[in-house]
Simulated scan of single mutants.
Amino acid sequence: MGLLQDLYDDEDAGLDQTARLRSVQAAFRPVPVDTTGWTSASASRAAAGVSGDLAEIVVAPDGRSATLTLGDVMGKGTPAGLLAANLLGALDALARENPAVAVEGAENAVRARFERASAFATLFHARVRLADGAVEFVDAGHGFAAIGHADGRTERIASVDLPIGLQPRGFARLPRHVDLGPGDVLVCASDGILELPDATFDTLTDLAARLVAVPTLTDGLAAFMASAPERVDDDLTLVALRREHGTAGRTTPDGPEGSTRR
């Protein structure tokens, strides 16, 4: 073990703690979606070195769906970051499950630790069917997701459930559904977006509208972050997923694409 320990010890590898922290944080950032007809992007800025936000966008191994997740642990800095990593790991272990089952299972896995830490987290967790844009999601006390439609309409997705760690045992959260048509964008933010100068919930829906029109989501989120202060009072994380034009659409049994249903 001595040789391995020397090889992987941060100081012996020439890494200071700040550099090592940055590399670990980078490993927790979403990897852009690379699949036909869909694009994604993310951006983040921590208030205190380590972010208490968790985010992920990942395509399933069978290529049929993508999962978009954004959560926000109360507080900031290293304590919040540790709990965020714990929650993200629990969700990763349940990646094959539908959002309602995954969120319930993850909450059961982290509940005791969150209770001992007197903490809670808000969470938006969605599965997108890539063939037709059908989205199933759970919003656990989050309320910072929005859709920008290709026809210029926007809608914010309000939360109807309690955060992770506060939902009573045995009470399942409500699975909900939306549809993304060609050109539509789903964007989710942490609540740090409201800490930006002059920000309101319209800031989120305005961003959704802008992301419909930008050449790339990466450019759109970069422009938004460039307009934000270098130092933020609360962790700020953004994730976005866009269904590109030219992908086939359909009409669902619940109504036409682009309609919100419960």
Rank of each mutant, 00 (worst) to 15 (best):
D132S: 09
E115A: 15
D151I: 09
Q167V: 11
V160M: 09
D132F: 07
D151L: 11
S118R: 15
F171E: 13
V138L: 07
D151H: 10
L162E: 03
A126H: 02
F124Y: 14
R156D: 03
A134T: 13
A150R: 14
D132E: 13
I157N: 03
A134N: 10
V138C: 07
G165C: 05
P168Q: 11
P168W: 11
T122C: 06
I164R: 00
V135G: 04
G133E: 08
A150G: 11
I157F: 05
V138P: 11
A126D: 02
A146D: 05
A140T: 08
A134V: 13
I157C: 05
R169K: 15
G165N: 02
Q167S: 10
V128F: 06
A131I: 09
E115Q: 14
A131W: 06
E136S: 14
A126C: 06
D132W: 08
S159G: 13
L166V: 12
R129T: 15
A150F: 06
A150Q: 13
H149T: 08
H149G: 05
G152P: 11
T122M: 07
P163I: 02
D132C: 11
H142S: 11
F144T: 08
V138N: 03
R116G: 08
S159Y: 07
H142V: 11
A126L: 03
V128H: 03
A121E: 02
D161Q: 09
D151P: 04
A134F: 12
A121K: 02
H149Q: 15
T154Y: 05
G143R: 05
A134R: 15
A145H: 08
R129N: 12
V160D: 08
R169T: 15
H142Q: 09
A119D: 03
R169A: 15
H125C: 05
L166M: 15
A134P: 00
A146Y: 02
F144I: 07
A172H: 14
E136L: 09
E115C: 04
G143H: 06
G133L: 05
I157H: 02
R129S: 13
A134W: 12
F144Q: 12
A131G: 11
G133R: 02
L130S: 04
R129G: 09
R156G: 09
I157G: 04
A146P: 04
A126G: 04
D151S: 11
